[in-house]
Amino acid sequence: MLSRVADSLYWMSRYIERAENIARILDVNLQLLLDFETLDDARLKEHWEPIIRASGDEVLFYELYDAPTSHNVTDFLTFCRKNPSSILSCMLAARENARTIRDQISLEMWECLNQSFLFLNSSNARSVWDSGPYQFFKQIQDFSHLFQGLTESTFSHGEGYHFMQVGKYLERADKTGRILDIKYHILLPSVRDVGGAVDAVQWGAILRSCSAFEAYHRLFVASVEPWKIAEFLIFNDLFPRSICFSIRLLDEYLHRISGCPAGRYSNEAERVCGRLLSDLRFGNVNDVFAYGMHEYLAGLHQRLVEIGKAVYESYMFHPRVDIAAEIATQQQQ
């Protein structure tokens, strides 16, 4: 497979996963606001700022908007073309990547991607959004699921598919980590609320942001408890949005690409990924609290960045050819 094609498949898949996660975070948090009695500006800021941090760029936000109101934040994360992580920008980037490799993906995948882009870019999208964000965000998530289903059933499960899965699981692990990190920020300024009703609602929102509310309750039955949630979202081996699960599949697909047997490594990407996987497999929530949740998650994020870099260098990167030098060499021959 051409390196450029692998790169595009990887990013296409990553951007779609990113758009889906942002849609879910926004959806859950908009609904969450409905449960609060009244929110002054300070409380609103408290509510939205961590979300901006988790999914985008805080500095950029304040350059474009004056205050973190619900409307501004959702606009920034949904339609803002200047924000490279907005849903629209992600879908645009996913489609651009798909366009450069149209011949490589199935017609069904392309049509799905193209239609959702046409929808998002149309005035119709705004009106769906205005009439009810719930419907709108649902549509984005549905689209992502449709795309994944079409990928499963119309696209050969060969090398290209493996690169798509690598992109997807890397992005998912990262976003689950960031969603958990939101909670850390919410807790920080008002320690007195810990354990209160609001807190339970907010932790519930974290679970919902990962589609994990029901899965969590099935496992623990008990009420919402912060460390159990952290344990679930980081270490659960079966839930498909947990970090451990994502890294396990990431590891598996990396090995399928190289053909290297499981438990060993043939390149840097497999090495760093395998090391993270064993930390997650043999770790538990005590590590997280001993280390500090925020610090733990920041470290995790750093390691995911490292894996992404290693994947790029192992498979997609060829030392850039210096055209001038190349021309000179070829002219001498």
Partner: peptide
């Protein structure tokens, strides 16, 4: 894209190709 897909061949851009020893190669994973 349409033609490449119908024929099942790779679609390449200039930077995907490199000439070494008078032969043309494409950069793959």
């Amino acid at each position: 894209c349409f033609l490449a897909r119908q024929m099942g061949i790779e679609i390449v851009q200039g930077p995907d190709l490199v000439v070494r020893d008078f032969k043309v190669y494409m950069r793959t994973t």
